[in-house]
Simulated scan of single mutants.
Amino acid sequence: MEELNYQDVIERIKARFPQGTVRQREDNGRAYIPNQIYTDRVESATGSRWDREIRDVEVNIPHRFVKVIARVTIGPHHRDGIGFSEIHADGSGKVKQLSTAVDQAANEAVRDALDTWQIGWRDLAPYNSKDWGGNPALGHLLHGEPPGEIDFTKQPAAVIERKCVFANCGRKLTRDEWELLGHIPNLSRERMTYCFEHIPNHYKRKIPSEIQEAFLNPNK
């Protein structure tokens, strides 16, 4: 089997969906993409070489909620997501359809993890133009390639259009450096875009050791 090319997989995951994929909820009008679409995209982009793991389930009967933490792994990288759902009860206070609530929270947690890889962002941005979709830093999502016409052969193999913000540096980041920043907790890589050399040490220490090892020794 052909070796998984992580960067190529992520570009395919982030590519636009066909016209009509985005739906709008009947209750609040919010735009969304069904979970099945996300799963199908990751399946096809990775050739089924991905994994999702439920890390924690909290069922809080008194406060009527379920919280699930899920981990999605693609190649050498993983992302965690959190999902919540409401526990419903009948008139006597007896809990009903608890398994459905757990499933809903699990699905949301997986979707939350996948969201960190920007899946569906290009499609949802126009529906959120007054919020994050209209932010100048994300303007490329609104003005990128039209649906279904992403040409992966035109994508740079190693360098992306992100420059290091460190004083007097300005070097374009590699795709691996960009992905590495995504593993630093509480760091906004849209604003704090560092090449590896200039990542502040207190942030470097927060990168999981296995992730940093894979970055430093990609051929192992």
Rank of each mutant, 00 (worst) to 15 (best):
R122P: 03
I184E: 00
R122A: 15
N5L: 09
R79A: 12
E210A: 08
N186T: 13
L180I: 08
T174Q: 00
A158R: 13
C164D: 00
L114M: 11
D90M: 02
K154F: 07
C195S: 01
Y203V: 02
I119W: 01
I54F: 06
I54W: 00
E11F: 12
G139K: 08
L216F: 06
L98N: 07
I69A: 07
E26L: 14
S188Q: 09
Q212H: 08
I87Y: 04
R52E: 11
R41N: 05
E43V: 14
E108Q: 11
K163C: 04
M1E: 12
D103P: 04
H63I: 10
L180R: 03
E145P: 10
N60P: 11
H202D: 14
I61A: 08
V22T: 03
H77I: 15
K172L: 13
P76T: 00
A106T: 10
I74K: 00
D40S: 11
F65R: 06
V9D: 00
I184Y: 01
A31R: 01
E190K: 13
I150G: 12
D131P: 07
F65D: 07
G133A: 05
R111M: 11
Q104S: 14
V102M: 13
R205N: 08
R162T: 12
Q24P: 10
C164A: 01
L173G: 08
P62C: 01
A70H: 02
D123L: 04
R52C: 11
S48C: 06
E108S: 09
P200K: 00
R30S: 14
I69H: 05
S85N: 09
T73S: 15
S44R: 15
T21H: 05
C169Y: 01
I69Q: 03
L180V: 11
I211L: 04
F17E: 02
P62F: 06
G170L: 01
N35M: 12
R12M: 11
R23F: 10
V22P: 12
I211V: 15
I10Q: 04
D103T: 15
I207P: 05
E179L: 13
R30Q: 13
N201P: 06
L173T: 08
P156F: 07
I199R: 00
V57W: 01
G148A: 05
A45N: 04
P218M: 07
P126Y: 00
A31M: 08
G133R: 02
E210S: 13
P156Q: 03
H88R: 12
R122D: 07
A137D: 15
E86S: 13
E213Y: 13
E145R: 05
N186Y: 13
N60K: 04
A214S: 14
L141C: 06
P76R: 00
L114T: 03
E108R: 14
Q212R: 15
T73A: 11
R49T: 10
H63K: 12
R191M: 09
I10F: 09
R55Q: 14
T174G: 02
S85G: 04
G47N: 02
Q212A: 09
K14P: 00
S99K: 10
I119V: 15
G133K: 06
E108T: 11
R12H: 13
V66I: 06
E190N: 10
